Amino acid sequence: MAAETSGAPTSFERGGWGWLFQRITAAFLIVVLAFHFFLLHFYHHAYEITFAGTSARMSQVGYFATMWLFLVTATFHGVNGIYNAMVNQGIKGIQKRAAQGILGLAGVLLVVQGTRVALAMTDLV
């Protein structure tokens, strides 16, 4: 049974861009997470992972782009999921606006810091 909402549908209700992007990011995350686990947990074993190896992988433009997209999509998917769970629980008014602002800021800060760390691990800049 879907929660009653006023206005635009949430990501948990069919229709709308939020619903579509939540599904697209989920599909992308499944594929990239499988790649990540295969590469860093099966192909390379934990004892083989070094900073130098990470730097070498992150210095490859394709790998860097994939990991950066992983960061951005995981952040969107998580923040959007938390926000929509709160909306479905009945958050309204000023609390809803505060949640949008806080979660939006947290998402931006996470992507900025993740990008800084990713760039620090490369020789691309």
Rank of each mutant, 00 (worst) to 15 (best):
V112P: 02
A52S: 13
R97W: 06
G104F: 06
G15V: 02
G107S: 05
S55Q: 15
N84G: 02
T73E: 15
Q89I: 02
S6L: 13
R57K: 06
I82K: 01
V112L: 12
G81F: 00
A56I: 12
P9N: 15
Q89W: 13
N80F: 05
S11N: 11
A8S: 10
H36M: 11
W68H: 08
R116G: 09
Q95V: 03
F37H: 10
L20W: 14
I94T: 06
A2E: 13
I91L: 06
V72W: 00
G107E: 01
G16S: 09
Q60V: 09
E48Y: 09
H45G: 10
M58L: 06
V79M: 02
Q60C: 03
G15D: 01
F35I: 13
F64D: 02
F76R: 07
H77C: 14
L39W: 09
V117A: 12
F42G: 05
A46C: 04
K96I: 11
A27C: 12
E48V: 14
S59P: 01
L105H: 02
F51D: 06
Q95H: 07
S59Q: 12
Y63S: 10
E4M: 15
L40F: 10
Q22I: 05
L40T: 05
V72A: 08
V125S: 07
I24L: 08
Q89P: 04
V111M: 01
Q100N: 09
T115S: 02
L103E: 05
M86H: 03
V125P: 00
G101H: 04
G107D: 00
N88P: 13
V79W: 00
A65W: 07
Q95Y: 11
A120H: 12
L110S: 05
L124Q: 04
S55R: 14
R97A: 07
G16T: 05
Y47P: 05
G114D: 03
A46M: 07
H77K: 12
L71R: 00
H36Y: 11
H41D: 03
F35P: 03
Q60T: 15
A8R: 10
I49T: 09
F28E: 08
A98H: 07
K96N: 11
T122N: 11
L39K: 10
A106P: 01
L71T: 07
I30W: 15
F28S: 11
F35K: 13
